[in-house]
Amino acid sequence: METFQVIILALIQGLTEFLPISSSGHLILPSQLLGWKDQGFSFDVAVNTGSLLAIVIYFRTELWNMFTAWSKSIATQQTTPDSKLAWWIILATIPAVIFGYFGKDYIKANFRTIEVIATTTIVFGLLLWWADSLSNRKLTEYQAGWKKALFIGVAQALALIPGTSRSGVTMTAGLMMGLSREAATKFSFYMSIPTGLGAAILVTKDLLQSTQSIDMNALFFGTVVSFVSAYICIHYFLKVISKVGMIPFVIYRLLLGAVLCGVIFLS
Rank of each mutant, 00 (worst) to 15 (best):
V97K: 12
V203H: 07
L134I: 13
F99P: 09
F187S: 04
A75D: 10
S188V: 03
I107L: 13
F249V: 02
T93R: 13
F102P: 11
A86P: 05
Q78G: 10
F4Y: 11
G262Q: 03
P95K: 14
G222P: 13
I98T: 12
R112V: 12
W36M: 04
F189H: 06
T211Y: 04
A230S: 13
G178S: 09
E62F: 03
I107S: 07
L9F: 00
K186V: 02
L158C: 14
F41H: 14
I107C: 07
V250M: 04
G145H: 14
G40M: 08
S267R: 10
F111W: 14
I247W: 02
G103K: 02
Q39W: 09
I55W: 01
D44L: 04
L9E: 06
V47C: 12
K243N: 03
G196W: 01
L33Q: 11
K239Q: 02
F237P: 01
K108W: 04
A109R: 10
L256W: 05
V6A: 03
P30E: 12
Y106R: 12
Q156T: 01
P248S: 06
L128T: 04
L91M: 12
F18Y: 10
F265R: 11
A75C: 15
G245T: 01
V56W: 08
G178Q: 04
S73R: 09
T170C: 02
L27A: 09
C261T: 13
G262F: 13
T49L: 05
V169R: 11
L158G: 02
I241E: 00
T49P: 00
I7P: 02
G125M: 15
K147P: 04
A173P: 05
F67H: 14
F111A: 04
T61F: 10
S24C: 09
S83H: 07
L197S: 05
Y106D: 01
L150N: 03
A258N: 11
G168S: 08
N136Y: 14
E2V: 02
K243V: 00
L256T: 05
A131W: 02
A149F: 01
G103F: 08
A184T: 07
T172S: 08
Q156N: 06
W129L: 06
L179D: 07
F99H: 05
